[in-house]
Amino acid sequence: MPLSIAVCVKRVPDTAAEKKLDDGDKTLDRDSVESILNPVDEMAVEEALKLKEANEGEVTIVCAGPEGAAQQAIRKALSMGADKGVHLKDDSLHGSDAQGIAYALAQVLKKGEYDLILCGAESTDARTNLVPPAIAEHLNLPNLNFVKNVETSDGKVTAHRETDKGHDVLESSTPAVLGVVWGANEPRYPSFKGIMAAKQKPLETLSAADAEIDASKVGLDGSKTEVLEFGARSTERQKNVVDNKEGDAHVKLADFLQQQKFI
């Protein structure tokens, strides 16, 4: 049976870039920073491509967001080898919190019949890890989060969930929602041929109405969380730096640790 796989991806601001929150509505001013495809999402795409190669099937990339950024993210995934893209684009989504975005993506995913829905287990910008389990909840599907080594056969999926001590081996029925952990694989670089081919691959754009999204559940008004205020963290560090020329810096450090009651 060929597999139908969806991968949800996101553009994130480049970590190295300076970021600012918009003074007006307290959302990230995403125009002010360089953005890249969320690196963990690239690993989710790679995991999907490996599953497709092992089982045959089709990989659909789903992305919500403003035109330029979302389409770049989808094209990048298509150039890696995914088959088609779905772009959810609607001004009403601006300011949605993690729960709002998860609901909106779930509405889009309902339109397709997917055996597996993959996401990066977290994004590098807002590390809340909340989206994949919330998508699973909205679709009433099982969720395997922080996983790698994903394998599937006969309507079952198995994966390794990273734990502090090693890993748990999880098994679930499909369809299922999987959050792929950082380091799950080494994402492939798009080939020149892949980049050219990506331009011809189908990319469907949906509005919130097309996806039957209830406007009261998304956007700033639909968010169940609210930013009250924000500011730069000011942490005064002692910056007591000593050179080990005399060879006794370890004694000074031990003194410091003792003063601070760590010893």
């Binding site: 942490t235 910056k239 007591n240 730096v241 080990n244 370890h250 004694v251 031990a254």
Partner: peptide, 25 residues
């Protein structure tokens, strides 16, 4: 830039001595 205490030195020299020093204390 963000330390409270820093040592500019060879870790292969400093770390074993520090470990021992903490043990003693």
């Amino acid at each position: 830039q963000l330390v409270d205490f820093g040592i500019v030195g060879d870790l292969f020299d400093v770390v074993p001595k520090l470990t021992e020093e903490i043990g003693k204390r």
